[in-house]
Design a binder for these strands. Structure first.
Ligand SMILES: NC(=O)c1ccc[n+]([C@@H]2O[C@H](COP(=O)([O-])OP(=O)(O)OC[C@H]3O[C@@H](n4cnc5c(N)ncnc54)[C@H](O)[C@@H]3O)[C@@H](O)[C@H]2O)c1
Ligand SMILES: NC(=O)c1ccc[n+]([C@@H]2O[C@H](COP(=O)([O-])OP(=O)(O)OC[C@H]3O[C@@H](n4cnc5c(N)ncnc54)[C@H](O)[C@@H]3O)[C@@H](O)[C@H]2O)c1
Lengths: 217, 217
DNA sequence: CTCACTATGTGAAACATTTAACGACTTATG
DNA sequence: CATAAGTCGTTAAATGTTTCACATAGTGAG
C-alpha cells in the first residue's frame, strides 16, 4: 500500500474513524446518499471541513448530489484498513484495563485486544471479556507479533513496561497512565490523560464562558 | 475572578494541568528550581512552547535562573482554582463508570466525583469507590448544584441523558459515549472517544511511518 | 429538454499554534 | 570586578488548520 499519502493533515486523519463510524450508521439505516451538511450535523464538524477532508482523497462526491453512502463507506473501509484486523495487547488488567477488555472494540472497528498481561498472580489465568490474562513475566514469550499496546498499569510501572514493550517489537502505545513515557523515535505514543481532560474541562468552564445560559420562559 | 483572561490560547489552557502535575512532582522531590528545558524533557513539550505558555501569565521566571518551583506551583494552584473542589456527577456505573469511581481523581486534583447515577436497580444503593449509586429517576432531585457531569451510559441513552443533565443545570459534560450529543450553546461538551483514539493510533502507525526501527546489533 | 436548484471542490483568507532566534538580564566563576 | 555561561521573554517566521465564498457541474421537476 502506498505510504505516499503522507500529505493528509493529522487533524484530518484523526477525524477519519469518526466519519467512518457515522457512515456505517447511515448505511445500516438504509440511507443511500448524504451531503456534507447532513454529516456535519451528525458529527459536529463544520461542513466545509468535511469537504476539505474528503478532498484530500480526490473527488469522492458529486456536485448537486452529495456523497453516495455505500461508495464512501467502502472507500473509507479501504483507507482505514478495516478489512484486516489489528491485534492489540493490553498491559495492566485493573479498573481501566478490565473496562476495555469488557468493551467490544471490534463492533465497528478493525482492532481487537488479543492478549492481556498483569503482574498480579491472582488475576493471571482468569478470563476477562473473553481474553485470557497472562503473567507479565511471560510478555516477551507470548506477545508474538502484536505491534500495538494499551498501557493501563500504575504510573510507576509505565516507563519500565514501555521499554519492555518496545524491546518486544511494539511500535505504537496508547498510554493511559499519567506518566509521560520516553521511547525511541520509531515508536508512536498517544497519551490519553483522563485526569487532565477533566481538569481542562473545569478550567474551560470557569475561564472561557460560553453564551449566557437562557432561563426558560 | 477576572474572566478577562480569555486571551490564553486553548492549546495552552489544555497543557496547564499537565504542568501543574509535574510541578507538584518536582516540589515533592524537593527541587527548588527548574528550567524550561528540564520541564520540557519531563512533559514532552518543546521548551519554547513552555516559555511561551508561561509568558501569557506574565514574567514568572528569572533570566539566567529558570523558575522557582514553589512560586510557579502556587501560581498555578491559584490559576487552576486548585483550592476549591469542583464537584462532578457520573452517569452510568458500568465498566467505565466503575473504573472512574474507583480512581481517586482528587489525588493531585481539585475535582471529585460526588454522586453517581445508574438506571439498573440492582446497582442502585451500592457504593462504588466510596460514592453511593443513586437511581437515575432521582437525578433532578439529587444532583443539586453540580455543574460538571461525566457521561458513561450506553450511546443510545446519551442524547436523552444529556438533555436531562442540561435541564438540571449541568453546563459541562465529559462524554465518553460514541454519540455526538447536541446541547444548547451555553453547555460545553468534550468528547473522549476511546474507540476512535485506538483507530487513529493504528491509522498513524500504518500511514505515517516514523523513523525506521533500528535492529539491534 | 430546459432551467432552477443543489452541493461539491477549492483558492484564498483567516485563524491558531509551534518553533526559531536572540537581546537582555542573572548567576557563577576566577 | 570582569567575563563566561545560562535561561528567560518575546518578536518574527513557519507551519498547520479552519472557514469563507463561489464557480462549476450535475440533479431532478416539469
Ligand atoms: N481508573 C481510572 O479511572 C483512571 C483515571 C485516570 C488515570 N488512570 C491511570 O490508568 C492507570 C491504570 O488505572 P487503574 O485504575 O486501572 O489502576 P489499577 O491499580 O486498578 O490497575 C493496575 C493494574 O496493573 C497491574 N500491574 C501493576 N504493575 C504491573 C506491571 N508491571 N505489569 C503489568 N501489570 C501490572 C496491577 O496488578 C493492576 O491490576 C493508572 O496509571 C492510573 O493512574 C486511571
Ligand atoms: N468500556 C469501554 O472500554 C468503552 C470504550 C469506548 C467507549 N465506551 C463507551 O462508554 C459508554 C459506557 O461503556 P461501558 O462499557 O461502561 O458500558 P456498560 O454497559 O458497562 O455501562 C453502562 C451503564 O449505564 C447504565 N445505564 C443505562 N442506561 C442508563 C440511563 N439512561 N441512565 C443512567 N444509567 C444508565 C447501565 O445500567 C450500565 O450500568 C458506552 O457508551 C460505550 O460505548 C466504553
Amino acid at each position: 500500500m502506498d505510504v505516499e499519502q503522507t500529505k493528509i493533515p493529522q487533524a484530518t486523519a484523526k477525524r477519519l474513524p469518526l466519519y467512518y463510524r457515522f457512515l456505517n450508521n447511515l448505511h445500516s439505516q438504509g440511507k443511500l446518499r448524504v451531503s456534507s451538511k447532513e454529516l456535519s450535523e451528525a458529527v459536529k464538524v463544520d461542513s466545509a471541513t468535511i469537504r476539505r477532508d474528503f478532498s484530500y482523497f480526490g473527488a469522492l462526491g458529486k456536485k448537486g448530489y452529495g456523497y453516495n453512502v455505500e461508495y464512501l463507506l467502502s472507500f473509507f473501509r479501504k483507507t482505514l484498513d478495516q478489512d484486516e484486523t489489528t491485534e492489540v495487547a493490553l498491559i495492566g488488567v485493573g479498573n481501566l484495563g478490565t473496562a476495555f477488555l469488557n468493551y467490544n472494540f471490534t463492533k465497528n472497528n478493525n482492532t481487537r485486544i488479543q492478549i492481556a498481561f498483569d503482574a498480579d498472580h491472582s488475576r493471571v489465568g482468569t478470563e476477562v471479556g473473553g481474553v485470557k490474562v497472562e503473567h507479565v513475566d511471560d510478555l516477551e514469550d507470548k506477545i508474538g507479533r502484536v505491534s500495538v499496546a494499551i498501557l493501563t498499569v500504575p504510573s510507576a510501572a509505565a516507563q519500565g513496561m514501555a521499554e519492555r514493550l518496545v524491546e518486544a517489537g511494539v511500535t505504537a502505545i496508547l498510554n493511559f497512565t499519567p506518566a509521560r513515557i520516553t521511547v525511541p523515535s520509531h515508536v508512536r505514543v498517544h497519551h490519553i490523560d483522563l485526569a487532565i481532560e477533566l481538569q481542562a474541562l473545569v478550567y474551560f468552564l470557569k475561564h472561557y464562558p460560553l453564551e449566557e445560559a437562557v432561563e426558560e420562559e
